[in-house]
Amino acid sequence: MRWRLKSAEELPPLAEAQRERYARQIMQAELGELGQRRLAAATALVSRHGGLGGPAALSLAMAGIGKLILVHPGRLVQPALNRMNLMSEAGLGQGHSTQAAETLKRCRADLVVEPHDCAVNDLENLNEIVAGCDVVVSAAPTFEERRCLHQACLRTRTPMVEAAMSGYSALLFTILPGETACLQCAFPDDGGWEEPFPVLGAVAHALGAMAALEAVHLLTDAPQLAGTLLLWDAKKMTMTRVALRRDPQCPACGGLD
């Protein structure tokens, strides 16, 4: 298993400015100064930072993660402005990742950001990029991109937080390659997925924040949704946890140990 927490000896100390900026979360006992140091030393890739991935990236940046790799194709269009909180009207027609990187750098000047104005499946060195990450947040609106990123995570044993929504339905779970159920174990078939799908910004934002929180848990302590599917019904405001088991015959992860 590739996922493991870095020990105190492997991590640089916090600067005084970091200690001051993150004082209110360092006082959270489960996080503490060691957790903050782990965050500061961590790299996360966020695949698409629209209504869901944008809030995830923002939450990770504000929490003090060291580096964010942003991957999102295309240029900003008007109908995206109901939910993409890293974008602005002034950025219409601009590349998503370039603009998101500028927004995040305005929030946190010391954040290292690597923007890619393309989809993950257009990155020739995707495996190499993913191998350099401590966690990946999967938030793209197509199964093609999700499956591609998932394959890269399995190949490189990189933990992946899978977050997806449609209308008032949202799901979240974490994949520890070779240890817990993978995307293929959970959903062997993509089914009747169609674009465009309905999306209210508040639902996507809340799920994005939850995905970031799970990533923070994974980076600083332990993932809470590894092998557990969280279903959030945003209409009824209910949550359901479902155990996910690995499929020993899974064509994607069955051979991993």
Binding site: A163, A164, A170, G192, F197, A204
Partner: peptide
């Protein structure tokens, strides 16, 4: 994905009267 009482079930799982069968369709919305 078929879920009964918070547990994923297979197609051949027997259902009880009053059971709630949750049908979760795959999602890729982000």
């Amino acid at each position: 994905m078929l879920i009964v009482d918070g547990e994923r079930v297979a197609l051949d799982a027997a259902l009880a009267d009053g059971a709630a069968l949750l049908l979760v369709s795959p999602m890729a919305g982000g």
